[in-house]
Design a binder for these strands. Structure first.
Lengths: 193, 193
DNA sequence: ATTTAATTGAAATGATCATTTCAAAATTAA
DNA sequence: TTAATTTTGAAATGATCATTTCAATTAAAT
């Protein structure tokens, strides 16, 4: 019976994520992927189909990674104010660790490919909707608890915060000044109280 | 004596801008540029040097266009509150007109190339600094006139507003709902009053 | 041990990439 | 008109692109 997949799929996806995040989709060649994954060219095609195939798996992998880190930190939070802060804290940490200015893969591919590849378009659109819905839930709870004001609906605040997160990721590509970025986050959250 | 340049350089740069904005730097080929500019391949190399050469001219062209539309609208404004609103209004208009979800060339190339091409890195960095300085000037005047509060320095508000602009451009790629985006802008500006 | 089917390596495919080359055509000042 | 010089067209360059091919190798199940 068949030989089974020997390589560590997660390890391969991690390496592929790094190179796609660094060079972008169009800037990354199959040769780049062969080099960084230490996988045979045939094995890549065998396991992922085509370049867009491995990219879509990378997108899911990257998104799951973010979801997990959110989940892990959010269950530790005692109130909704902390929950929102944690989301920005994770983003800030990710920015400060991003030494080679790669930026966020989801933001990058939204700007590079959303208008070119329908499958990427629907992926990032769905992902954005989920993210906004998650924030809206938190705001909703916070408003019920009178922690956040009700001048705007939870939905409106969610769009505002999601937009701020994307802005933060863009600004954070070139600006790694922690003090400035922390103050920026405080200013973003000011409207909620 | 020499034959002079016959083609309309601005027209060529406009066409080149459109294709770079739509497909990105790595997604645009010299053949694409030949096709959209109706210029000979040799003429492109003769006039712009190389692909990165024409791209850098496109960046300047695009940036000048934005600067001019800002200048044109800003001289009409009577107070600093309007000045800030005008900046967001121009951005909003640009988003709503962007039917094919190209996004902003400066945002796109920050995410695609700032970490790969030093010359692009320094261009967008300088451009960001100037934009933030311009916003800071407006905030400064507004604070002196007691139109904006002084809970944060003009510099801190400028970074916040610039980040919000970038976030708005990212959100505006997939979300073209004018009502939602207008409310979003109002929320962004809330902190100033 | 033999069968079975996937993995692997390495080479080949043919398209497309950015860039160069160069002779012919075009244009302008003298 | 002639001389000067650039634009133009079209082909060639050689590298790199994504993808395919296929024989050899590998590993599990019988």
């Amino acid at each position: 019976m068949p030989k089974v997949e020997t390589f560590d799929r997660n390890q391969v996806l991690l390496k592929a994520t790094e190179i796609f995040q660094k060079k972008g989709y169009n800037g990354t060649s199959m040769q780049d992927l062969v080099d960084v994954t230490n996988l045979n060219r045939s094995s890549i095609y065998n396991s992922f189909g085509c370049k867009l195939g491995i990219f879509m798996e990378v997108l899911s992998f990257y998104k799951n990674d973010i979801d997990q880190s959110f989940e892990k930190e959010l269950i530790k939070t005692y109130n909704t104010a902390d929950a929102i802060k944690v989301i920005f804290e994770i983003t800030l940490k990710s920015i400060l660790e991003d030494d080679d200015k790669k930026g966020c893969l989801l933001v990058n591919c939204t700007s590079e490919m959303a208008n070119q590849e329908p499958i990427v378009h629907s992926f990032v659109e769905k992902n954005q909707d989920k993210m906004i819905a998650m924030i809206e839930d938190i705001i909703n709870k916070g408003q019920l608890q009178k922690i956040f004001n009700e001048k705007q609906t939870a939905s409106q605040y969610a769009l505002y915060l999601f937009t701020s997160l994307q802005g933060l990721r863009m600004t954070g590509i070139l600006n790694k000044n922690e003090e400035e970025l922390r103050n920026l986050v405080n200013n973003i959250l000011y409207i909620l109280y």
